[in-house]
Computed example of a mutant assay.
Amino acid sequence: MTPAHGSGVSVEGGVDLDTPIARAARAAMTVREPESGDWPRPSRCRVMSVANQKGGVGKTTTTVNIAASLAMHGNRVVVVDLDPQGNASTALGADRTEGVRSIYHCLVEGEDLIKVAHPVADIPNLWCVPATIDLAGAEIELVSLVARESRLKRALGAYDTSEIDYILIDCPPSLGLLTVNAMVAAEEVLIPIQCEYYALEGLGQLLRNVELVRTHLNPGLAISTILLTMYDGRTRLASQVADEVREHFGELVLDTVVPRSVRVSEAPSYGQSVMTYDPGSTGAVAYMEAAREMAVAGAAQ
């Protein structure tokens, strides 16, 4: 039976192309081989800290998938894993075994960042500076070091960023010395906020810390991007939280909202971002759109 004209159903050779499987396949191809080609690149390297001291907000997931999306669309990206849990390293398939040179050695021993940045398998233009268990003690060791707040800035300063478009720093879920190092080294802060009841809990303290760093250590630091994550369209609460965040932060909030997605949660256990694990999933498409917004905004600066 032929669909009525204007029904919006695509048919080719008598086969219905508007099935759920077909839509997922088209979405996957859009992520892997976007019709629009490469996205615009910034005029200079954008160094961004991805921070929120509240755990479970999608911070590491956001870092990994934004980075993968940008890299898959022609940008050159380095992910610096500054979280002792090392989840970003795991999601990008980086080696975290004992003895591996990592971001710890850059912070504490002055190792060159380029020596510990490893290419990510299956995603050209993407590198990861891994975190190992050594980083767990770095907070204590940094206390006695000279210029303890700017150790990461020094490491990045010795890195040739002329061939890099983005450096994304995945911060730990705390406001200690590691997070301060990330904010001193960065120019921008990206804050993921989950669309749940406690979304704004502790956010005021994060904003105050950003202001303290800007006042005393890094005058160029600014909150540039806020991304709403874990959005559940079935609940009124999610919509209310999103509206409240947009009302408070205005244009800093990306239009794209990342929905709750099982695939996004599964991907790291396979040592992948969701962009390669299941590029047709709603989470992958949302992160791709969020990254595209960031790329366009960055090119306009």
Rank of each mutant, 00 (worst) to 15 (best):
M1T: 14
P3A: 05
A4T: 01
H5F: 09
H5R: 10
S7F: 02
S7T: 13
G8A: 08
D18I: 03
I21H: 12
A22T: 10
R23T: 09
A25S: 12
V31H: 08
E33S: 08
S36I: 06
P40V: 05
P40N: 05
S43V: 11
C45T: 13
V50E: 07
V50Y: 04
V57F: 00
T60G: 08
T62H: 06
T62R: 07
N65W: 03
A68V: 10
A71E: 00
H73C: 10
L82D: 01
P84N: 12
N87H: 13
S89K: 03
A94D: 04
G99Y: 08
R101V: 09
I103P: 02
I103V: 15
H105I: 12
E109T: 01
E111R: 09
D112P: 02
L113T: 08
I114H: 11
K115Q: 07
L126M: 09
W127Q: 05
T132C: 09
I133W: 03
I133F: 08
A138C: 07
V143S: 10
L145H: 04
K153R: 15
R154P: 01
L156P: 00
A158Q: 13
Y166K: 04
I167W: 02
C171T: 14
T179S: 14
V180G: 01
A182E: 05
V184F: 05
E187P: 03
E187I: 02
E188H: 11
I191D: 01
Q194V: 01
C195L: 03
E196P: 07
E196G: 06
E196T: 00
Y198C: 11
Y198V: 07
A199Y: 04
A199T: 08
L200H: 09
G202K: 06
L207S: 12
N209V: 14
V210I: 15
R214A: 14
A222R: 15
I223V: 15
I223W: 08
S224Q: 11
L228H: 07
L228K: 02
R236E: 04
L237Y: 04
L237V: 09
A238T: 06
S239H: 14
V241P: 02
E244V: 14
V245K: 08
R246M: 08
H248G: 05
H248A: 15
F249H: 11
E251D: 15
D255F: 13
T256A: 15
T256P: 04
T256Y: 07
V257G: 06
V258D: 03
R263F: 10
V264N: 01
S269Q: 12
Y270E: 14
T276V: 15
T276K: 10
Y277V: 14
D278L: 10
P279S: 12
G280E: 05
G283C: 06
G283P: 00
A284T: 09
R292E: 13
R292L: 09
E293N: 10
A299R: 07
